[in-house]
């Protein structure tokens, strides 16, 4: 059994090696499928449903890219990656892009030879405490026991924060988010700290969410976004501008509802350039003229994706906050399509 698999794989390897010199974009178009690295299960960001269909805001980015490149939002092979193997899988070519709640940091961008192409969620580290504790600010947490996930930036952030404010704390190191939640609920620690989006989604699953409050302080910057390998700028451009297209579409008022009528042409030249009825933006990118419209058709614009996956209408219930359009006081800002 293994021998036959081995041989057919060798044959496939020989065939694939023939294309290997071409760019990532050409490889994907030849294969007809985008290999996208996602998380192994983060509520609202990436998780398979009961029938194995992947959903979440990270997954939506993959689907939008697949729709822009291949005109099929389901032409994606989702590769679940743990935080330990995600970067090496991207660098070794096992996935074409990574969209996996990954914080954009200096060392990852520069030292690990990765290219971050945008931000799909501005996160920050927060604190959650039981209401009974009677704490209303993180500055009142002197001497508290804190549940922290080890090996993440949260561990370093909280050490910095408590040192700067001259406070002490007792860490309870924990390996996974699920375990951290169980320990917190069992009363092993007074405070649970991690990215505030994860805190909110964790709180939404408690039996009694109202018995817990999130403190107003956000102590770190955690810009999460998709990334690709260094060295293939054309492919980086495709992912970057697909991400930008999702954001710009919300700003321009292009939604999945009015997409078809706008594709016929409108009196706004920027929308026309965006939809490919004017100009040659798609051709410059090496894609079809309607690439941006295809990307929007996958799951709507950024605002629609946000609302459908982690927004206030979902159980996770995150407000737009920093992730609103720049015109609404947020940080979502796409360079112009020109």
């Amino acid at each position: 059994m293994k021998k036959s698999l081995f041989i057919s794989t060798l044959a496939a390897a020989g065939m694939v090696a023939g294309f290997a010199s071409a760019g990532t974009l050409q490889d994907i178009q030849a294969a007809g499928v985008l290999k996208c690295g996602v998380g192994t299960g983060t509520a609202g960001f990436a998780a398979p449903d009961a029938s194995g269909y992947w959903e979440g805001i990270d997954v939506a980015v993959c689907r939008a890219v697949a729709a822009a490149v291949l005109n099929d939002k389901d032409a994606v092979e989702f590769v679940p990656l743990t935080s330990k193997v995600r970067f090496s899988s991207l660098n070794s070519g096992e996935v074409d892009m990574l969209s996996r709640t990954t914080t954009w940091t200096f060392s990852r961008d520069v030292d690990l030879a990765l290219t971050f192409v945008g931000i799909n969620y501005y996160d920050g580290q927060g604190f959650m405490v039981p209401k009974d504790l009677g704490v209303s600010s993180a500055l009142e947490l002197d001497g508290a026991t804190v549940c922290i996930q080890t090996g993440t930036t949260t561990e370093l952030n909280i050490a910095d924060y408590f040192r700067v404010n001259g406070m002490t704390y007792e860490p309870v190191p924990i390996d996974t988010a699920a375990e951290a939640q169980a320990q917190y609920l069992a009363g092993a620690c007074d405070v649970y700290t991690t990215d505030s989006s994860a805190l909110a989604s964790s709180r939404s699953t408690f039996e009694n969410p109202d018995a817990h409050v999130m403190l107003p302080e956000i102590i770190s910057k955690e810009p999460l976004g998709p990334l690709v390998r260094h060295g293939d700028d054309q492919w980086a451009d495709v992912v970057r501008w697909t991400m930008n297209a999702l954001i710009a579409a919300e700003e321009l008022g292009i939604t999945s509802a009015n997409l078809e009528s706008l594709a016929a042409g409108s009196n706004n030249p920027e929308i026309n350039r965006f939809m490919g009825t004017e100009g040659t933006l798609g051709e410059m990118l090496g894609l079809e003229a309607t690439w941006a419209a295809q990307a929007i058709s996958a799951g709507g614009n950024y605002g629609e994706i946000f609302e459908a996956t982690i927004g206030e209408s979902t159980p996770i219930g995150l407000a737009r906050g920093l992730n609103a359009q720049w015109t609404q006081g947020g940080l979502m800002y796409s360079p112009p399509f020109r």
């Binding site: 192994t40 983060t42 960001f45 998780a47 964790s202 939404s204 408690f206 159980p315």
Partner: peptide, 13 residues
Amino acid sequence: LAIRGDVDWAGIL
């Protein structure tokens, strides 16, 4: 992990 990633079942252990 994947099942806990579904909002319906998050937190089940």
